[in-house]
Design a protein around this nucleic acid. Sequence first.
RNA 1: GACUCCGUAGCUCAGCAGGAUAGAGCAUCGGUUUCCUAAACCGGAGGUCGCAGGUUCGAAUCCUGCCGGGGUCGCCA
Length: 590
Amino acid sequence: MTNQTDLADQLSEAAGAAFAALGLESSLGAMRRSDRPDLADFQCNGAMAAAKKLGRNPREIATAIVDALKASPLVASTDVAGPGFINVKVSAAALSARAAKIAADPRSGARSMETPRRVVIDFGGWNVAKEMHIGHLRSTVIGDSLQRLFRFMGDTVTSDVHLGDWGLQMGQLINEVKLEQPDLPYFDAVFTGPYPETSPVTMDDLGRLYPQASAKSKTDETRRDEDRKATQELQAGRPGYRALWHHFCNVTRVGLERECASLGVNFDLWKGESDAEPYVPELVEDLKARGIAELDAGAWIIRVARETDKKEMPPIILVNRDGAIGYHGSDLGTIVDRKRTIAPELSMYVVDQRQALHFEQVFRASDRAGLLPEKALEHLGFGTVNGPDGKPFKTREGGILKLYELISQADATALARMREAELGADVSDDERRDIAHKVAVAAIKFSDLSNVRTTNYIFDLDRFISFEGKTGPYLLYAAVRIKSLARRAEGEGVKPGPIAIELDAERGLVLQLDALNDALRGSYDKRMPHILCDHAYSLAQAFSSFYTAAPILVESDPAKKASRLALAMATLTQLELALHLIGIDTPERM
RNA sequence: GACUCCGUAGCUCAGCAGGAUAGAGCAUCGGUUUCCUAAACCGGAGGUCGCAGGUUCGAAUCCUGCCGGGGUCGCCA
């Protein structure tokens, strides 16, 4: 695979050579997309940086660079502006050449990383017995986008759903079921099996029992002690509890798989906290032996505070005073598991920002214990989804909006919109439903992902499933129009040809196509899908302008027709690529 | 209390490894369809970037303080 250079790279090289010729660092020649598109395509601010260092006049240096750049075939015009900005307009020839390369490349001109890494993405956040709701959307959608992006950039990614299936909530549930159905064999300590194959509880039961159990555990100390005991017994292997726990997990997983299928999200591993269990006893013994784990108030802890800390850094609880493994311990066990089975160079945890402290503790402990180094572990926190009042989102009835309810509302809105526009009259019911679902998922994913990952955001259902403006459906619409165009072109026997850039709208489109690498790198380096969302949106906008300004099939000049068709097809490839990387599927029509 | 994130147009948000006139979308006002999907396009109006200092030739962006909001702070996850 050859990595292409984009226009910014090419210009930076030319400007860098000019700086070097003056005896200055070539890195000063870095060119970037202009902040003033009315004045230039690209700009370089290096002359001002150089002038500051050398105590020279920035305009003087800039003028020398500009004189050198004028000779470059890449450059149509260049000048010095203001205090020493170097502005460049790219030549039509350079744009045409770049467009041809992008058009011919299945990766749409995207580079990949030179040294691929083994990467783990942990989606931790879903819990057994909890149905997916609006709050679970973020880790799913962000994590999925990142796994697609990292794979595309060349890394070897292993994604793990990493269910919360091993903590106190399991003991709470076991006791709650026991209260309702005390005669079940799972609670009989002398029962020798076999246990029933069908679950005594449904997902709806779990959804009802879990909040009840949790509330009791919070207020009633006796009950809480019982829950802890049950948790410890479960973890120690009490057969009845294990059997019942398996039912909880299976029942929950069916529901989660349904939502994942609906959203088009896949995982390599459906592991959970419980899968760390086999690694924990050995780890605990080892840490005790090495003095890293210390006994404190009946619990085994690992101190992770440092002298340089500005804030309090509590120790992690490896084993609590009941002998049970909590969240910290199972996360460390999971790190051991991954180190042995995957040996990741980078592990990313896509989990609510509120758990930042927890991950800092675990990462430090991992480092101290000599498991994976702290710098190879990253917590990618995300903000909470709030309602218009700034508090965690609730439905109008005050309840929590379940994910499948959100999806079906969006599906219905999309179907209604199609009917309104009298679209899809010629397609089957099944296809119409499929299209509506794709539009709905695009709306949901795009509105979530286009927010900056780390900040909280306000969830407004109407805006979330609105199909106008900066939304997923806008992007789909642009792609679908190109697909429709392609079908017509094929019917008329029109073929793409050499690309020649003439109109402003064509220039704008090619410059936008060329910006893909910046967006990919930004999104990848910062682990921020919204950068890619912005690129996809800008691309769709640039295409829409082009599509309005430059007639294609009705154009009489066959060369122009072929050139514009080629440009449109190159746009489709890149748009679908960008959409794919944010987890959005494009329908053939809508 | 400590630490942390946030405060940008009427609303929802970008921009923040300093740079030229602070950008989108929605809402609002006006225009575009005998022609490739109007879920579209073109244009107008709308902001002392929370406040006050500081660093700099230059600050929404960096530093300090203050005000306002969210979050976290050992046996829940």
